[in-house]
Design a protein around this nucleic acid. Structure first.
Lengths: 142, 142, 142
DNA sequence: GGCGTTCTAGAATATTCGTAG
DNA sequence: GCTACGAATATTCTAGAACGC
């Protein structure tokens, strides 16, 4: 019934995380979290490094050159960030971003079809669920 | 009555744009727009370049290492972006960001005090002003 | 009150038609119609010629490389095509596309602000007008 | 209370695809 | 084939919300 549009954001993300040529996107050790190294991603995927590189491996996968656009997409498809950065003072270099979605797990390409863009209608549904669960705090919705 | 807190964001911005040692923040030719070169700013002000530089001139001016935080601050203080991406024909990379505020102009440090953080209360004020002016379309509020 | 967003499609179009460096977009002799030469436009503005040129004059003005996207924008902003092509005759030489809008005329930059994107709300207005005129077929709305 | 930082969402425009006429 | 438009996604700019100081 539902098939995946290979041009959609989830499909591109799945391709990137499983491509051995893409070093900026990869799984955590358990295969439950998506790790993205921003600096490297901007260079090798968006092709917008400080030296003006062209995207080598994944040419023109995205039209944007800004990482914030990728973040917006991740949120639009229901990903959430883990490891909220606590004013990272540790290294001068940034840790990778940790993102999670229940429908994005290693070796489970079958789940990707459930990654739906949060459109207006779908967001209303979520808000209703949340509101109801707030009013009936002892109950759980399926 | 109102004095400027030298630790506030507007004060830091004013210092940066007028510092000859800061090459990533500068005025446009008319002194009406604030120009910021993201890549350079991240390196020389936030000290978070890909090579792990330490902020040289302006050490620890900000606690963040992410440019998005600077953008959030700019918006919170009423700056707006002009000339988004294109129409800048120079190199392949890094057109500066153009930001504008009526209270941020070259040679006018006296205006900086008017840069107020848009907090909840102040935003309500603005909304009320707008609403009233909609209902009384012939009138102007001070 | 209303000012023009220099990044919007109408602003870009106005810039192109008045730029002497852009040979693919120009006025008709009366200054009432917008003429676009598709092949040349694709090469010099969209930077997607058969030889893979980079957009020379107007680099990255648009993110698309397809002319159909420009046509969609023209329609979204209320332009209509004149001279519907009657079986392009004899030869690969393409006539320019003729487009018209009452708010796009030579020497009248003041009209450009009236070029509004046909958004949902504005389209509803139109639909209401149409619906009413369907129910009251004898009447005409101004 | 205010301010700075982070993550997420709203709103508008831009781009693509499909499909009536 | 061609034009126009609806609908969905993509990109950008701005704002909301939560938390810590």
């Amino acid at each position: 019934p539902d098939s995946i549009n290979p041009d959609s954001f989830p499909a591109k993300l799945w391709w990137l995380v499983n491509s051995p040529r893409c070093r900026s996107v990869y799984w955590d050790t358990r295969g439950q979290e998506l790790l993205i190294e921003e600096q490297l991603f901007v260079r090798e995927v968006l092709g917008a490094g400080p030296a003006g590189e062209e995207a080598a491996g994944a040419a023109n996968l995205f039209k944007t050159k800004r990482f914030t656009s990728i973040v917006r997409q991740l949120n639009l498809y229901g990903f959430h960030k883990l490891v909220k950065e606590p004013l990272a003072r540790s290294g001068p270099i940034s840790h990778p971003h940790h993102y999670h979605s229940p429908h994005f797990r290693r070796h489970r390409p079958d789940l990707v079809v459930h990654l739906k863009r949060l459109t207006r209608a779908r967001k209303v549904k979520v808000k209703v669920k949340v509101a109801v669960s707030m009013e009936l705090p002892g109950q759980l919705l399926p």
